[in-house]
């Protein structure tokens, strides 16, 4: 399906969640390169580097110390350099108002962290697949909204 690697970045302050995340991708049969960061500051530092390899999909946890997921989201959306990144909010909350708010602020995807590993694998796989379809089908990135 794709010739190159899909670059994926996760920013999450929870060690266990990072572990789940990387384990899930390593078990999926997709050519992906996964990077994780401990908090928002580390993430933005990386992204703002001159020669940074920008991810195709960025997974953002909301509750992070120092810089929250929302703050990162706003920063990223205000910089046109990052327009091509599909942003997925990766969170424990399932409050409707929260979810809508992240979409309004520019997130493309909202994922509620599942409580089952297999479910997690499926979700991540679906996200990457759909994102890839968008990417290759020339569909409007602006309107790309997905909720898992």
């Amino acid at each position: 399906m794709q010739k190159e690697y899909i670059h994926i970045v996760l920013a999450d302050d929870d060690e266990d969640d990072r572990l789940f995340f990387t384990d899930a991708f390593s078990e999926l049969k997709m050519s992906t390169k996964v990077q994780t960061y401990n908090d928002g500051v580390a993430l933005m530092d990386y992204l703002n580097q001159e020669d940074a390899i920008l991810p195709n999909v960025l997974f953002l946890d909301l509750n992070m110390p120092r810089k929250s997921g929302i703050e990162c989201l706003q920063e990223i959306k205000s910089n046109s350099k990052f327009d091509n990144i599909a942003i997925a909010i990766y969170s424990t909350s399932s409050s409707e108002e929260h979810i809508e708010e992240t979409f309004v602020l520019g997130a493309n995807i909202y994922i509620k962290k599942p409580n089952d590993f297999n479910a997690l694998k499926k979700v991540l796989s679906d996200v990457i697949t759909i994102n890839w379809q968008y990417h290759t089908s020339g569909l409007n990135k602006e309107n790309f909204l997905l909720r898992m």
Partner: peptide, 20 residues
């Protein structure tokens, strides 16, 4: 209730990993 979800989720996920 919100913050209790975190550790519970971990427990459930790890359990599912183990079972798998």
């Amino acid at each position: 209730s919100h913050d209790l979800q975190e550790p519970l989720r971990k427990i459930e996920t790890f359990i599912s990993r183990l079972i798998d």
